[in-house]
């Protein structure tokens, strides 16, 4: 039963995925024969308000982005972990509720730590 169920529903998703990629590729490829193409050096340099680009564009960026990404991983895993608990909530009873509060509380400690360390503060 399960083995029959999965391919049937997910087949539509797979086909839509392939369709989406093909739409993008085919539109851009077919367009190649219709659109004008007159490239020259000045047109092809990176846009910088009409000036020559000064330094390398892939510059060093703020460490905050990295910290936000780390925090995202923690909290996203948390929310994914909450999903199965949430959908079976009715069957689990009071014990699971308390357990989950302990789980949320532990994460809250980390959250407060991040707050106090001013990770969430973009400017001081």
């Amino acid at each position: 039963m399960e083995a029959q169920y999965i391919p049937k529903e997910y087949l539509a998703i797979l086909i839509l995925l392939i369709f989406g990629v093909l739409f993008g590729v085919v539109t851009l490829y077919v367009g190649r024969f219709f659109r004008i193409s007159r490239p020259y050096h000045e047109k092809l340099i990176a846009y910088e308000s009409g000036n020559e680009p000064t330094e390398a564009p892939r510059m060093r960026f703020s460490i905050k982005f990295y910290l936000i990404a780390i925090l995202f991983v923690i909290f996203d895993v948390e929310s994914i972990y909450l999903y199965p608990w949430a959908i079976t909530y009715d069957h689990l009873g009071f014990f699971a509720l308390v357990e989950m509060f302990i789980f949320i509380f532990l994460l809250l400690v980390g959250y407060i730590y991040a707050w106090k360390k001013e990770v969430l503060q973009w400017e001081k």
């Binding site: 990176a46 910088e48 680009p53 564009p57 892939r58 510059m59 905050k64 982005f65 990404a69 995202f72």
Partner: peptide, 19 residues
């Protein structure tokens, strides 16, 4: 794209979307 504007835009967008 290897341009400063796109680089900053991409970074900002990523941080915003994941937050």
């Amino acid at each position: 794209s290897n341009s400063k504007y796109t680089f900053l835009g991409g970074l900002r967008s990523m941080a915003q979307v994941i937050s």
